[in-house]
């Protein structure tokens, strides 16, 4: 039972990858605990907390997400078509199949895996008016509406720039690639797919003063010895074990 609940409330892998945040933090920031039994022997460990969340374009660890899933509110369940293998990523060129921009091609700017959504740059847009007052009509902001990856967008084959279905296959080097079903050409993974909130690409990451440099990180300082961790540390500090009841336990 718990497993199914977890399945439904799960934050998408791509969302987590883009955030570059520890899973623990995402869980912690999403958590809405209504009541928890005190940590005492007379209580069984029980927690009453929100289990069902409405995922939208707001990222799960943000304040806006918390606002949308306000304490004590309940929203109707949204059914999302299960997808085994996700195939559209940030930076992919896709063709819109429905709506006012039907037939136009654009670049995927965001993926919202929890809802099977993608946002395509500058397509399927509407105007949002912010700061509307009785004297002031508000400022118009262009905002993209999400599109379903299942039937509202299609990946574009880079060789002929036409929409195509894809298949995941392996190259001879063992690399998993997307292959266009129509032309058999490989659709390369976009560079934007590796982008996270913190860096554009792994090579472009700028070390902060608290980061360990790579030369220190990859240095192998471990050499196996027949000692436990404690024995080894004490040996290094030239300390002797004093609280030993059994003489046989004294480390050599």
């Amino acid at each position: 039972m718990r497993l199914t609940l977890l399945l439904f409330e799960n934050v998408g892998e791509l969302t987590k990858k883009y955030a570059n945040l520890p899973e623990r933090y995402i869980k912690r920031s999403m958590e809405q605990v209504y009541w928890k039994t005190p940590n005492a022997i007379q209580y069984l460990p029980r927690t009453v907390q929100r289990k069902k969340f409405r995922f939208t374009t707001n990222r799960p660890w943000t304040y806006q997400f918390l606002q949308q899933n306000e304490r004590g509110t309940h929203r109707k369940k949204v059914f999302v078509e299960p997808i085994l293998e996700w195939s559209i990523f940030r930076g992919d060129r896709v063709q819109v199949l429905v709506g006012r921009d039907k037939g136009k091609q654009g670049i995927v700017s965001r993926v919202i895996q929890e809802r099977n959504w993608v946002l395509v740059q500058g397509l399927n847009c509407h105007m949002r008016f912010t700061g509307k007052d009785k004297d002031f009509p508000g400022v118009a902001v262009l905002s993209e509406a999400p599109l379903l990856v299942t039937n509202q967008v299609s990946l574009v084959d880079p060789s002929d720039l036409l929409p195509t279905k894809i298949e995941w296959r392996f190259t001879e080097e063992g690399e998993r690639v997307r292959v266009s079903e129509r032309t058999g050409r490989i659709i390369p993974m976009p560079l934007m797919a590796d982008e996270t909130h913190d860096y554009k690409s792994k090579s472009a990451y700028k070390e902060s003063p608290k980061d360990t440099v790579e030369s220190e990180l990859t240095k192998i300082t471990f050499s196996p010895t027949l000692r436990t961790f404690e024995m080894d540390v004490m040996n290094e500090m030239e300390k002797k074990e004093e609280n030993v009841t059994n003489v046989a336990d004294v480390p050599s």
Binding site: K202, D211, V213, E216
Partner: peptide, 11 residues
Amino acid sequence: MFVLTKLKYLA
């Protein structure tokens, strides 16, 4: 040069 690991620990 991809090292994000936290904390420079050898001083």
